[in-house]
Simulated scan of single mutants.
Amino acid sequence: MLHFPSANTAAHRPSARDVAKLGELLDDDVWAFSNCRVDAPGRPVAEVDWFFYNVRHGTLMVSEWKGFPQRVASATDTGTPWRLDGGLNVPNPIEQVSRQLDAVRAVLRGTILPHHFPTFDPQQLLLMQSVYSPQVDDGTTIERIRWGKVYGSLPHLAGFISTATSKSPLTLPDDGARLGLATALCALFRTSFPADVKAKLRSPKRGGDTDVVRRISAIHRHIAALHTELADLIVVAAGSAGTAQPPTAAEAPRAKVSKSQALTEQQRMHDHLARSFQGVNSSRDDAAKALEKAWRSVLNDPLLHGDTGISISLFGSVGTPLVKQRHGSLPKVLGMQLRKWCLLQAKAFGMKPLDIPGKPSNIRVR
């Protein structure tokens, strides 16, 4: 994520923790302007908490962040207040972000589009809107919101920002125009332009040559295979080190079976991921789909359902090399932590994932 904080030293600032979390979840194709001050002709000055622009997908979002003294019991659409635990009613933030969105749309149409997107029809400009509140949880009743979404989790918000597409994407013709656009947006929103962010935008992006992508993908698979071979050698070495005290006749078969199962689990996990990533890595969406396909295969593989269940951490360690160099960490690709994603996927596949006592990284499915 490229972050452009408010240039006003007296302005409210997002917490460093939230900024760091967004930085983990969003890549540098997402520009984030915080605590923007928007002057739209004929409208009151709008104070915008966050404006997100995904330059790769051409999507834009105005996001209102709200903290409440109690948990949000009910989040409704415009026209009625939100209700907190205890019965307290609070102003509806959906209505607030809608007013902000109107102001942002007006200034973008009037100042940014004519200079940086001269062929784009201003009437086709689409902006998304959202409300984020950590007091929204799984127990909150969220009414169907006509224009926008409500989030109580930063990974869920970041996942939507990363993957959402638009019928009328606002994309630049080339990467060289990004620096000028970022400068104009900083001036418009009264945000600063950090030196490290400017340096990133000045550096030319590497081309996405298909042959290069395939070669990188092949290298990742080879590295994963080497890791498997090393794991085998470690197990063999560990077995050799114990020859001074050979196992009894009753213990030897058990040790042999344990080694075989460990090797098989690692190898089979690698095989499922390698097959799913065959020809993949051209985009982060494709990588996410490949992980979904691989995880489904793992869940349906009876040989990976041992006494200790299915190892999510092993799936992550084998899958990470396939996405890390091009797309970053697995949580970035998936939009949330790996364990949570794996549980949600299992449920989506019609399975019931169960925790295993003493094995926090393992699950069993029914």
Rank of each mutant, 00 (worst) to 15 (best):
S311W: 11
Q267L: 06
L185F: 03
R99I: 01
D102C: 01
P321S: 10
T140L: 03
H115F: 10
F120R: 10
T9W: 01
S34P: 05
Q123H: 09
V38H: 02
L299Y: 10
T308L: 00
Q70F: 10
R284S: 14
R13D: 01
L127Q: 07
P93Y: 10
P353I: 04
H12L: 06
N92T: 04
V136K: 01
H116Y: 13
D271H: 11
N281A: 06
T320V: 06
F349W: 11
V107S: 02
A231H: 00
R37N: 00
F120Y: 13
K359I: 00
Y132S: 06
G148N: 04
P357Y: 05
I142T: 11
S283K: 07
S313H: 12
G328F: 14
I223F: 14
W147Q: 15
P246I: 02
G139Q: 01
D29Y: 08
A199T: 15
L322D: 10
G350L: 14
S192C: 09
D18V: 10
V280K: 03
P114S: 15
D18E: 08
L303G: 09
I356A: 01
S276E: 07
H305W: 08
A32W: 14
R339Q: 11
D285T: 12
A177D: 09
W65P: 00
G328Q: 09
V72C: 14
S168P: 11
D137M: 11
K293I: 02
W295Q: 07
N300G: 07
R83A: 10
W82Q: 08
P169V: 03
L338Y: 10
A346W: 07
K66Q: 12
V45W: 03
G208A: 09
Q129W: 00
F120I: 13
R190S: 07
T80P: 02
V62A: 10
V318S: 03
R326T: 08
M61T: 15
S6A: 11
N300K: 04
A75M: 06
R339Y: 14
L343K: 10
A199D: 14
S282I: 04
D77T: 06
L25N: 09
L154G: 00
E47N: 13
V107N: 02
S74Q: 14
L84R: 12
L2C: 02
H156K: 08
Q337M: 11
N300D: 11
V236N: 15
N281F: 01
G207M: 14
Y53I: 10
I219C: 05
I363C: 01
G139Y: 00
D121F: 02
A274K: 05
D85Q: 12
D121W: 03
A346M: 06
